[in-house]
Design a binder for these strands. Structure first.
Lengths: 167, 167
DNA sequence: TGGTTTGTTCGGATTGAGCCGAACAAGCAG
DNA sequence: CTGCTTGTTCGGCTCAATCCGAACAAACCA
């Protein structure tokens, strides 16, 4: 219940975020920087992030750029105050997961489907290859629709949709 | 429509699989070896895979081991015939995706949740950290349930569940 | 204007993953 | 028993990613 306990708990969660970042194909530094921002009460500048994380200024600069691009954190260019750029974490984790989904899975599914379609056009006769490709296409078409729909729902809605579904 | 066209189409799809493998955190060689097995009419041995893919014997050995472990291909230890081990692709792509989901996402979600629970126990009083951690926990609990349910449905069922859901 | 703070960009060191070839183990065939 | 095929394991090479420090650019302050 003390501040020390709080910061230990915070540190544990941030370490977990470092690990999650790796699972999702990001660097450990991304996980830590996001974690520090997640718990920060105000947006932080790059020098502040350097203090908090121990990473070099250049690392923080690069990581914040990519995290901003992906939408995990938001860049607030405060034209007014002393510091120039400050970063804030996107705390709606579900949004983040949706973004990752869209950027990774959906794109992958779509490019694969495009390849499959082109391959199918090329092979007119019914060979074994053709059949295999068709099977692949059918699964991917389901998958495309699933990903599309899932990205439109909130976590609670998605959960409910699955829980109330009767086969 | 000729054999040449077929094999070009096959090659295209296999290249696409190489790329997909990278997206899912596997090596390109994994994608190619899976692809060759996906289109093969019979299970293939390691020397045959060496011929088909051009990779070294050791590479094929290592990759087939990991792919078997994940469930992307199946090891058929034919005690009878001349060749000893042969591999067959799991062609139900949806099963594969479910496996990947289970192994990557579900495990990640569960370990994160465990960390969060422990962190919450430690911090009794309502600090800002505590609140942030609680928000995180709620999203992850939804997510855990979603992943759990999704892994029990077929692609078609899942698609239907989402399509018929009325908010 | 000169100095300080902030942020970006560049080159380089370190590390890990992927792949290879060679050595080794284990069956089968003669 | 001696080769021949198959599969695994080991050490090493290469390449890419990560991170660092230094140099640079840009804005603010005195």
């Amino acid at each position: 219940m003390s501040d020390a306990d709080s910061s230990v708990a915070r540190e544990r969660v941030i370490e977990s975020m470092e690990q999650s970042a790796e699972v999702y194909g990001l660097s450990r530094s991304s996980g830590r920087i996001y974690g520090v921002l997640y718990f920060a009460s105000d947006p932080l500048s790059i020098p502040e992030l350097v203090d908090e994380t121990g990473y070099a200024k250049s690392t923080v600069s690069n990581v914040t750029r990519t995290l901003s691009r992906i939408g995990l954190i938001h860049r607030k260019s405060s034209t007014g105050g002393g510091r120039r750029v400050r970063f804030e974490a996107e705390r709606e984790v579900w949004f983040i997961l949706q973004d990752v989904f869209q950027q990774y899975i959906q794109r992958e599914v779509q490019t694969t489907l495009r390849t499959i379609h082109r391959a199918e056009e090329q092979v007119a006769t019914e060979t074994r290859e053709q059949e295999r490709i068709r099977e692949l296409r059918e699964t991917y078409e389901d998958l495309e629709e699933i990903v599309q729909l899932a990205s439109e729902y909130s976590a609670a809605e998605l959960r409910e949709a699955l829980e109330t579904y009767e086969r």
